[in-house]
Nucleic acid binder design. Structure first.
Length: 567
RNA sequence: UGCUCCGUAGUGUAAUUGGCAACACGUCUGACUCUGGAUCAGAAGAGUUCAGGUUCGAGCCCUGACGGAGCAACCA
């Protein structure tokens, strides 16, 4: 049996990103024996966010599309920042997104031995040396981007001395910060990264996987390319800020490689979203300072946050696909992300009735105590989702917003003397209402219904402009609904000079509405199950839901031209 | 004032080896509708940062400006 369909390797006429073009060219030229291997290399120091999703989709996506493999590799070279807690969440999030690294779960720390030996080799050929100077001095000597650096006095240490010192660094004989190993390249290079970069430093914090086995740890630049090489990675895809690291990446590969094969680093633009922050540091602060409820707060751009908010993996993949991969540093509009979920959920979310701000409607000519089960379609976009019945009775709740004592022009809803259809049931006419004169709140609305207008078989000729969602008062289930707005009220909260991003936190980003009334079928809804509350938006069941307490998160509103026009 | 990268409608992306700028989202019309959603039809909106050059012809090539980003962590 064939597994999933392999897409055609060469697509004519379809536009592909410059990265895909590179891959296709390499494949056609028979480079690396016509194989493609990519990798997704997170550092386990935080939760994955939607920016990572873009990288995941690229590396796993390209491998899948062209019959290659994508490795999951944890870039765990800094024990001070990393933790297993993050490893597990990262794996969960990648799986949720729909990608599979099979048995290729690797760790940079698995290569510490080989990396160490490579460093020793570099020392032996005079391309690395131990520097005893303090950090400030080394930094000072590096010069400025516009000024060349100066060479360290330790640059001409003998090979034997370097060998001995490096070994002792790793044995733990020296204090943190007292010595580093540096590659001996060019202190006057216009590229700062080539000015004798530090490749090993002493760290005494136990590593989450190797414990206290090592005391000298490789830096990113000394681990990444080499790890790619060890794994046979052909295309090492990363974000634009690593562009200036590429010469160093290649320099190490040059020293390391023995045959024709070499990994190639290609950089693409990172994903930026407006009205949010994306840096791990800031996200961590939001969590630690209690400004959100956790990494999975539905307002967070983390994958676990988006998942809890009700986003589907499909919608995130679609969004990523929509924004593409280029070298332009773009700021993407959240509304495009919202479009992507709406588009996805429109096809798959069953429609239900839920009233957020209920007001009671009494149908005075409907028999007291009577209940009818009306039939409604679960999803007009997908007939196979079938129908369900909803109880209808003399008293129903409708949305407060759907009634106006004195309607404005083009208000197609309920108002004294006006008729509307209760979706799936009858057309009702507002005869009167009761208002609390003190508060101005409408407390009850009195209507009559037309028995001839019941939805279904013998369709009545009568047409009305408005159709409302409703819930039978006697059968309604109480629910709490959490409405979310953007976390920040500034497009680019992190990019404002002289302003801390926290100043732009949107105080109204979470609105909890209690006492909502939803149709009885929702009583059995499961965690994260998604629905469209008709006319309102897409909602999913929050994990805080208990058997006696239903909680929904609003994923996104439906497009609403009415409120837009009347704002 | 060093090096690297980038500069196409409001936003994000396209434009085969140079051949008179396309798509999506958004916006605005209209149709339809038992969701003011969806769907369908249509419209407006850039002459490709600017100035030169090469060419019969340039968003694509060259030069120079201008604008933006990244690089000066014993982070990744």
């Amino acid at each position: 049996m064939s597994k999933e369909k392999q897409e055609e390797p060469v697509i004519k006429g379809e536009s592909m990103s410059f990265i895909e073009q590179f891959i296709v060219d390499d494949l056609q030229n028979g480079k690396n024996e016509g194989k493609i291997v990519t990798r997704f290399p997170p550092e386990p120091n935080g939760y994955l966010h939607i920016g990572h999703a873009k990288a995941v989709c690229l590396s796993f996506g390209m491998a899948k599309k062209y019959g290659g493999k994508c490795n999951l590799r944890f870039d765990d070279t800094n024990p001070e920042k990393e933790d297993v807690e993050y490893v597990d969440s990262i794996k969960e999030d990648i799986k949720w997104l729909g990608f599979d690294w099979e048995d290729r779960e690797y760790y940079a720390s698995d290569y510490f031995g080989r990396l160490y030996n490579f460093a020793v080799d570099l020392i032996k050929i005079g391309l690395a040396y131990v520097d005893d100077q303090p950090a400030e001095v080394i930094s000072e000597q590096k010069g400025l981007p516009s000024r060349p650096g100066v060479e360290s006095e330790y640059r001409k240490r003998t090979i034997d001395e370097n060998l001995g010192l490096f070994e002792r660094m790793n044995k733990g004989e020296f204090e943190e910060g007292s010595r580093v190993l540096r590659a001996r390249i060019d202190m006057s290079s216009p590229n700062m990264h080539m000015r004798d970069p530090i490749i090993y430093r002493i760290l005494k914090t136990p590593h989450h996987r190797t414990g206290d086995k090592w005391n000298a740890y490789p830096m990113y630049d000394f681990a990444h390319g080499q790890s790619d090489y060890f794994e046979g990675v052909t295309h090492s895809l990363c974000t634009l800020e690593f562009e200036v690291h590429r010469p160093l990446y290649d320099w190490f590969i040059d020293q390391l490689k023995t045959g024709d094969y070499r990994p190639r680093q290609i950089e693409f633009n990172r994903l930026n979203l407006n009205y949010t922050v994306m840096s791990k540091r800031k996200l961590l602060e939001l969590v630690q300072e209690g400004r959100v409820s956790g990494w999975d707060d539905p307002r967070m751009p983390t994958l676990c946050g988006l998942r809890r908010r009700g986003y589907t993996p499909e919608s995130i993949r679609k969004f990523v696909d929509l924004i593409g991969y280029t070298k332009v540093e773009a700021i993407n509009d959240v509304s495009l992300l919202e479009h992507a979920v709406r588009d996805d959920l429109n096809m798959r979310a069953p429609r239900v009735f839920g009233v957020l701000n209920p007001v009671r409607v009494i149908i005075t000519n409907y028999p007291e105590g009577k209940t009818e089960n009306v039939e409604v379609i679960n999803n007009p976009e997908d007939e196979s989702m079938g129908k369900r019945t909803v109880p209808f009775s003399r008293e129903v709740y409708i949305e407060q917003e759907d009634f106006m004592e004195t309607p404005v022009p083009k208000f197609f809803r309920l108002a004294p003397g006006m008729e509307v259809r209760l979706k799936g049931a009858y057309i009702i006419k507002c005869e009167s209402f009761r208002k609390n004169e003190k508060t101005g709140i409408i407390e009850e609305i009195y209507c009559t219904y037309d028995p001839e207008t019941r939805s279904g078989a013998n369709q009545s000729e009568k047409k009305v402009k408005g159709t409302l969602h409703w819930v039978s008062a006697a059968h309604a289930v109480e629910a709490e609904v959490r409405l979310y707005d953007r976390l920040f009220n500034h497009e680019d909260p992190a990019g404002q000079k002289d302003h801390d991003y926290r100043e732009f936190l949107n105080p109204g980003s979470l609105q909890v509405v209690k006492g909502c009334k939803v149709e009885p079928s929702l009583k059995s809804a499961k965690h994260l199950e998604k629905f469209q509350f008709q006319r309102l938006g897409y909602f999913c069941v929050d994990p805080d839901t208990k058997s006696d307490h239903l909680v929904f998160n609003r994923t996104v509103q439906l497009k609403d031209t009415w409120t837009k026009l009347n704002r």
